[in-house]
Every structure is written in structure tokens, then in C-alpha cells.
Design a protein around this nucleic acid. Structure first.
Length: 154
DNA sequence: GCCAACGTTGGC
DNA sequence: GCCAACGTTGGC
């Protein structure tokens, strides 16, 4: 099983929204690398749900891939902010997966906290100028972040 | 609100 | 095919 990290701005779509919805299509990704990451996902893979663009960016919960890569229909919708005329139902350019709410972390693990953890030094999320909205998480990184979430705040 | 990093666009 | 200009992301 592989692990991932899904970034979302909580005012656009939060982990609470996912809890309410149960499952959601991860639509709107318009970056080729992030798309390719989604195409590598398999049903049953787990991911961190990460809140970005807020005062304290943090991994807040766990979600599961329940439907593997399929065309992102928001790209076909002229009224959608994610519309892309280069993508058509016949030749879809953008893909998405469906993710399911699993559980919140025992407590959120902030970006600042991850930066302070020496064992996470190589993590993609922490790399300078790193902006991918969907990215892989190494098994060791997954374990360490879970461990941090179970530890009391400093 | 600022700005660095990065992707994309378009002129040549 | 190069690269400058521009737009976006996202931490701070």
C-alpha cells in the first residue's frame, strides 16, 4: 500500500467537509505531476488530509482512496472554475480519484512541527518551493507523522 | 499583504 | 526550442 498527502484550503474544502460528505471526488487538480500521482493511486491507499493557506498549515486527518483515476468532469463544465477547453470527454486531459473520510489524527500535526522533526528532513512537503497539491508520502514519513500526532503538544 | 518558487504562455 | 513575462501557490 502506498501513502499520499492531499492539500486543501479549508475554506474551500476542509476535512470536516469530507466527514460530512463521506466521500468526495478530488477534482480541480490542474498540474501534471499531481495528476500523475493520482493515476498511481490504488484503491485502499491511505493519505493525509492537509490544510494549507492558513495560519497554521497542518495534516489533520486520514482519508482513503476508494476510486482509482478517472476523468475529472469539472474540466468539461464551462461554468466550472476548473473548466479547461483542452480536456474533452473523448480525450480527457485531467484525472481525479475519489477519497473517503477515515478518521481525524489524534491531533493536527503542523507544518512547523514537521520541519522541526529531523527524521522528516527529506519529506517532499518540506522541500523549498514545493507546491504540489497531491504528493507521495514515504512509509517512514507516514509512521513518523502518526507518531507525532499521538504525542502531546510541546 | 508580500514575495519566492514554479508552471505556463507566447513571441521570436 | 529558448526564454522573458506573467499567473498561481502557499508559507510567512
Amino acid at each position: 500500500m502506498r501513502h499520499w498527502l492531499f492539500k486543501s484550503e479549508p475554506h474551500a474544502y476542509s476535512f470536516d467537509d469530507l466527514q460530512r460528505d463521506g466521500t468526495t471526488p478530488w477534482s480541480g487538480v490542474r498540474n501534471f505531476q499531481a495528476r500523475n500521482n493520482m493515476l498511481e493511486m490504488r484503491a485502499g491507499d491511505l493519505g493525509f488530509f492537509y490544510h494549507s493557506s492558513i495560519a497554521e498549515p497542518a495534516a489533520v486527518g486520514i482519508c482513503e482512496v476508494v476510486r482509482e483515476g478517472y476523468p475529472d468532469f469539472t474540466a468539461f463544465d464551462k461554468k466550472s472554475e476548473y473548466y479547461d477547453r483542452k480536456s474533452t470527454p473523448e480525450k480527457p486531459l485531467w484525472q481525479m480519484v475519489d477519497v473517503r473520510f477515515v478518521e481525524p489524527l489524534a491531533r493536527p500535526v503542523t507544518l512547523a512541527e514537521m520541519r522541526e522533526e529531523p527524521r522528516l528532513m527529506g519529506m517532499a512537503l518540506l522541500k523549498r518551493g514545493q507546491r504540489l497539491s497531491v504528493q507521495p508520502v514515504m512509509p517512514s514519513e507516514w509512521k513518523i507523522i502518526l507518531e507525532l500526532s499521538r504525542r502531546a503538544t510541546a
